[in-house]
């Protein structure tokens, strides 16, 4: 800013945050749970970007994945089922200077929280939203979720799920003001990290669907992808995801995809035999709600009082002098 900027602030010591500075409790997720990989990736992002813990907020709903804020040594808000997004929007609206992340599960986001999800996309606030999609309600011990594959036997669908799974990526892509949509699997840490990083740097609502294994209830639903790397189609682009040599060797099925191409993005979101991984769509030009709505000036309580009293004065009866 003009006149006064960061140069004016005396910085005697460069605070440096290590990974440990973002780790709080030992996660109580099951051994082998994919949420661990997401947690590690996010902690790595915080360290790489040196996010001040006091300026970072993780908001979640209810579910296994929603224990996320407990394991981050930052501010956190473990909210109500399906209500992570409205809380996060409130935080961002009032404190635009904070880095806001949202972690929710597939049940949280695509079932009880659907309305909030749709409108959060439309509001396009500068938030990173990670949907941990394991295709099951894990915390409540195996009930079918909207993203459970058809035929998955669960406590609520002992005969197997009746319906085809909801496609959250396609849904997100079709909402007004969508600005960032990515799809990724948690077991390729490098790609996961790069996509979360891109989402963090995106100015607007960044939605990432993360395919996450549940070792207990849905250990096999991703077998096709885990065992046959060619079933994963890596969407690469100079403006999108770029692979390291090692990952490139392992995942040979690569396709160049320009994230500004919405039509192609929808095509990749609906592949039936393959699973697209990468940034499907990105548009930096969509306005953010907080930028549009943020008041141009801050009003102190005194100013508010003054204005109110001015209004009240119009109705007061003056004693005759």
């Amino acid at each position: 800013m003009f006149g006064i900027d960061t140069e004016s602030i005396v910085n005697f010591e460069q605070d440096y945050y290590a990974m440990e500075d973002y780790q709080s409790n030992i996660p109580r997720w099951c051994p082998g749970c994919g949420d661990n990989a997401i947690l590690t990736s996010v902690q790595k992002l915080c360290r790489d970007e040196q996010l001040p813990p006091e300026k970072t907020v993780f908001v979640s709903g209810i579910g296994c994945s929603s224990r996320f804020p407990h394991y981050m040594k930052t501010y956190g808000f473990h909210g109500l089922h399906g209500r992570a997004l409205p809380i996060a929007e409130g935080v961002k609206m009032h404190r635009p200077d904070l880095h806001v992340f949202v972690n929710m599960g597939d049940g949280d986001c695509c079932s009880i929280g659907t309305a909030h999800w749709i409108h959060a996309i439309r509001y396009n606030m500068n938030i990173v939203a990670m949907m941990h999609d394991n295709g099951i309600y894990g915390l409540t011990k195996k009930q079918a979720s909207p993203t459970s594959p058809r035929g998955l036997k669960s406590n609520t669908t002992p005969q197997g799920a009746f319906l085809d799974a909801l496609n959250p990526t396609l849904t997100t892509l079709s909402v007004t003001n969508v600005s960032f949509v990515a799809q990724v699997v948690e077991w390729i840490p490098e790609v996961l990290h790069n996509v979360i990083k891109a989402a963090y740097h995106h100015h607007g609502f960044a939605f990432i669907r993360i395919m996450q294994r549940c070792p207990h209830f849905t250990p096999t639903i991703f077998n096709e992808l885990l065992q046959k790397p060619d079933n994963i189609m890596m969407l690469t682009h100079p403006n999108g995801l770029q692979l390291s040599e090692g990952v490139g060797k392992l995942y040979k099925n690569q396709q160049e995809h320009d994230p500004s191409d919405m039509v192609k993005a929808r095509e990749y979101a609906t592949l039936s035999d393959k699973f697209a991984v990468g940034i499907l769509y990105q548009n930096e030009n969509v306005p953010c709600y907080e930028d549009i709505r943020r008041p141009k000036r801050i009003f102190t309580p005194e100013m508010r009082q003054e204005a109110l009293e001015k209004e009240f004065d119009k109705f007061s009866v003056q004693p005759a002098s």
Binding site: G32, G34, A37, T40, P189, E190, P215
Partner: peptide, 25 residues
Amino acid sequence: TPLCTSCNDCINTNKAMFAYNENKQ
């Protein structure tokens, strides 16, 4: 190591034998 998803399975097997690096892998 770069492919590790930090799931704690190996660490839980033997903490002395396995450990995490600075990237928690």
